[in-house]
Design a protein around this nucleic acid. Structure first.
Length: 867
RNA sequence: GGGCGCGUAGCUCAGUGGUAGAGCACUGUGUUCACACCGCAGGGGCCGCAGGUUCGAACCCUGCCGCGCCCA
């Protein structure tokens, strides 16, 4: 017998350990059709946040469902080495011990990182287990695994050999805090209050000055020109002349270029090629102006600037430049202005465009196949609207800077000879062979962008570049489940690399879900303090309730606004089911048969039909990735059908020696089994516990076959629908007429339905407090009347009835019926409707009209009888 | 500036051509031996606004208003 109260904690711990120990997450099914999902690998430094919980819940639902359908279901799991984040974590720890990365040296530092990973790197995967994630842990991967690293090197070398990866000096987004290049995707533009400084640049010949406006005055120390628009008559005469830089004294040419916007600022713009992406483009059209880099990697000014500014931090330099210009009388005015300032999404530091030598992938060439694969439907997005986002990004893709000035990561397999020759090779030995014996080689100090290696995840986890059986069987994967915000970071890059290196797409379907927000719709963040820790929710309400909540709220990729009240509600749902099973146990209802039991009683035939419909709805919803609809079907079947009506209607049947008792026990057992199976992907722990509580089983529920059964159509559904309506109508009338709850009343009914009523008298007694049936019109005053399914029923209330209340009640019902009938009559009187509407619609309107009319007549007649 | 999306009951959201739904919240109530994390009954909506298409529009089209996100 189950405990009186449902306590999720111990149940969860017990079943997860059991499943993992028995290999249930990946049973050997060599004959079965594979079903593969690759987990977007979480950051190894990470802890489970609510976004992971949503992402992983959805994947686990799919995997458990497919596993139950008999597939060789495999959820590829692992973590990402997260170059910057991990290096930061370890450096912070070192700083606490008075140590530094530089002090330790590269090798010793990397040893520390590995030690850290061994000790603390598993936090997130332990947390995933608490959520119930049924991953293939036996084949867990890490992006820095030796085999994985070989795949990364192979990709680098091959792309290089194909001319798709090259070294170049270009402007990159430079993070002065990390002192590394970062990807343009890792830059977040924030709009902040800034200034527009209008600066006077004297003409070199002393004949006046030109005013330029800038939001970053410190960069003027790297100016190499001033540009005006070629059509701008105000400045036409100055083109080709020179201005004297007020602080460096350099002579800067005035050039004509379309980049200068006559509408913006003064119409003249200073050009600083080494510190602005647009200015670099101007330089490429006017090579003669050259460029000057004024920054050190740490964001201080270097020796290219006049002595007083050297070594100043860029922000301090800004203040100094402005102050000095003001002192010189060259600061014409200062305007308040909202400006877009790039920030590193991890460091939060202001990003500088910085001219360095880096490695780039020619993404535009790889993008073609990636675009094509989605355009032709080889990979589809769900919801499809995300395709547009994907296309737009691929269509405007820029060279991808893949080198990072970090130590933790895949070291770039490139070596330099003393004369500067670059050799790209899969190993140092190979490089040496290429360079010739005895030539000293120095390996590139940098590592690769973490996303460069993550992009290989769908195939490198399966053994690529070896032609492994795993790869043959599980690539391409079936589904990728991901938040839409990493379509660019990850999905597009996996598509590019997957297609290029395997010739096939990495997955057939990309399901994009939304972000989890707080109850008010705000993005969750630690700094705002509105972040919800999924494990706190698990502790409070159980993993099943958290999972069910996330699934129920997940609708077509919309953002999920999570209110703890919802979790509480689904905890209540779990308890409801728990109690239903307790009741079943008390009634001798146990494990059901494999096939639907033969049932004669309408109540049993009805619930079998309802259960079959529920299973169909859940299956269809999952096929369409409608997690909310599937959850809704399960919730309503369980609560509103099975608990509220079936169990209540079954109680009299189960009572002492009724002929229908055995049949009802068999039916209830079978239906409960189907429910537990269909609910299992959503609430795995509770359902597994209840599955075993119900009797001896051949298999754990996690490996039980997904339900699929049909029941012959019957008129039982009509009969029970009528019964439910009748009971509801009686209850409603009793409440509205203030009948004392304990009072039992006889029910007067038309003789024509005596048999039907008699069949359900025990239910009516129990659920509607009916004392007896009568088939003659009731005598005396104080009759309450109801119309259900075209028949009039009466409840004699004697003197207690409130005549006025009853009259009002009947009148209201009659008016409602008449209103509906009139509406339908109006439609039927419309020749256009009869001529053009679908025949079924016309048919239904006619039937409904007749029914409403009859109901109204009966209600009016009842009203007349009241007097 | 370009793109995407959203506006339906107090709140959070389903519903995408045929008489408006759910959960929570709210009101009243509590007979019954699964469950008060419960039962029963109930109130509550010009489906953002204005046009159009259609026999018929919450749903399709256009415009407007408001809100959000992405990109520049």
């Amino acid at each position: 017998m189950l405990e009186k109260t449902f306590d999720p904690g111990p149940i969860e711990a017990r079943w997860y350990a059991h499943w993992e120990r028995t290999g249930a997450f990946r049973p050997a099914r060599p004959e079965a059709r594979p079903f593969t999902i690759v987990l977007p690998p979480p950051n190894v430094t990470g802890t489970l946040h609510i976004g992971h919980a949503l992402n992983q819940t959805l994947q686990d639902i799919l995997v458990r469902w497919k596993r139950m359908q008999g597939h060789d279901a495999r959820w590829v799991v692992g973590t990402d080495h997260a170059g910057i984040a991990t290096q930061m974590v370890v450096e912070r720890t070192l700083a606490g011990q008075g140590l530094s990365r530089e002090g330790l040296g590269r090798e010793a530092f990397l040893a520390r990182v590995w030690a850290w990973k061994a000790e603390s790197g598993g936090a997130i995967t332990r947390q995933m287990r608490r959520l119930g994630a049924s991953c293939d842990w036996a084949n867990e991967r890490f992006t820095m695994d030796e085999a994985y690293a070989r795949a990364v090197t192979r990709v680098f070398v091959q792309l290089h050999a194909e001319g798709l990866l090259y070294r170049d000096k270009r402007l990159v987004n430079w993070d002065p805090q990390f002192q590394s290049a970062i990807s343009d995707l890792e830059v977040e533009n924030r709009e902040v209050n800034g200034h527009f400084w209008h600066l006077r640049y004297p003409l070199a010949d002393g004949s006046g000055h030109l005013v330029v406006a800038t939001t970053r005055p410190e960069t003027m120390l790297g100016d190499t020109a001033v540009a005006v628009h070629p059509e701008d008559d105000r400045f036409r005469h100055l083109v080709g002349r020179r201005v004297a830089h007020p602080l460096t004294g350099r002579q800067l040419p005035v050039i004509a270029d379309d980049w200068a916007d006559p509408e913006l600022g003064t119409g003249a713009v200073k050009i600083t090629p080494a510190h602005d992406f647009n200015d670099w483009a101007v330089y490429e059209r006017h090579r003669e102006i050259g460029w000057i880099n004024i920054l050190n990697p740490d964001g201080t000014l270097n020796d290219s600037v006049p002595e007083p500014y050297r070594g100043l931090d860029r922000f301090e330099a800004r203040r100094r430049v402005v102050a000095d210009l003001e002192a010189l009388g060259l600061l014409e005015r200062v305007e308040e202005k909202r400006v877009q300032v790039p920030h590193g999404d991890r460091s939060g530091a202001v990003i500088e465009p910085f001219l360095t030598d880096q490695w780039f992938v020619d993404a535009s060439r790889l993008a073609k196949a990636a675009r094509e694969a989605v355009a032709t439907g080889r990979t589809r997005f769900v919801p499809a609207s995300w395709e547009k986002t994907y296309f737009q990004w691929l269509d405007s893709i820029q060279p991808w800077c893949v080198s990072r000035q970090l130590w933790w990561g895949h070291r770039i397999p490139a070596w330099y000879t003393p004369d500067g020759t670059v050799i790209v090779a899969e190993s140092e030995a190979e490089a040496q062979a290429k360079a010739g014996p005895g030539v000293p080689l120095r390996q590139d100090e940098d590592v690769l962008d973490t996303w460069f290696s993550s992009a290989l995840w769908p195939f490198a986890t399966l053994g690529w570049p070896e032609a492994t059986p795993d790869l043959a069987r599980h690539y391409p994967g079936d589904v990728l489940v991901t938040a839409f915000d990493i379509i660019f970071f990850w999905v597009a890059r996996m598509m590019m690399q997957g297609l290029h290196f395997t010739g096939d797409v990495p997955f057939r379907t990309v399901y994009c879900h939304g972000l989890v927000r707080d109850a008010a719709g705000a993005k969750m963040s630690k700094s705002k303090g509105n972040a919800i820790d999924p494990l706190v929710l698990v502790d409070r309400y159980g993993a099943d309730a958290v999972r069910f909540t996330l699934a129920a709220l997940e609708s077509q990729g919309r953002d999920v606004k999570l209110d703890e009240k919802r979790v509480e509600g689904y905890r209540n749902f779990a308890t409801k089911l728990w109690n239903a099973v307790r009741f079943a146990q008390a009634q001798g209802i146990g494990a059901g048969s494999e096939a639907p039991p033969a049932a004669a009683h309408p109540v049993n035939r009805w619930i079998l039909g309802e259960a079959a419909a529920m299973v169909r709805a859940v299956t269809a919803s999952l096929e369409a990735f409608r997690f909310d609809q599937a959850a809704d079907a399960l919730y309503h079947f369980t609560w509103s059908r099975f608990c509220d009506w079936y169990l209540e209607l079954a109680k009299p049947l189960l009572a002492d020696g009724s002929a229908a008792a055995a049949e009802t026990r068999a039916t209830a057992g079978f239906v409960l089994d189907q429910l537990l199976k269909a609910l299992h992907p959503f609430m795995p722990f509770l359902t597994e516990e209840l599955w075993h509580a119900q009797g001896q089983r051949h298999t754990d529920l996690i490996l039980a076959p997904w339900p699929a059964f049909a029941v012959a159509p019957s008129d039982a559904a009509d009969e029970i629908t009528w019964l439910i309506e009748l009971v509801s109508a009686i209850r409603s009338a009793r409440t509205e007429l203030n009948v004392p709850p304990a009072a039992r009343l006889p029910l007067h009914a038309p003789p024509a339905i005596e048999a039907r009523l008699a069949r359900h008298l025990p239910a009516l007694e129990r659920l509607a407090r009916v004392s007896a049936l009568a088939f003659a019109p009731p005598a005396g005053p104080g009759i309450a009347q109801l119309v259900v399914a075209g028949e009039t029923y009466a409840l004699p209330l004697g003197e207690v009835i409130d005549l006025a209340a009853e009259r009002a009640r009947l009148a209201r019902a009659a008016e409602a019926a008449e209103r509906e009938a009139e509406g339908l009559a109006g439609r039927l009187a419309n020749p256009g409707f009869l001529a053009r509407a679908k025949p079924e619609a016309v048919e239904k309107a006619r039937a409904d009209h007749a029914a409403r009319l009859a109901e109204a007549e009966r209600l009016r007649a009842a009203l007349a009888r009241l007097g």
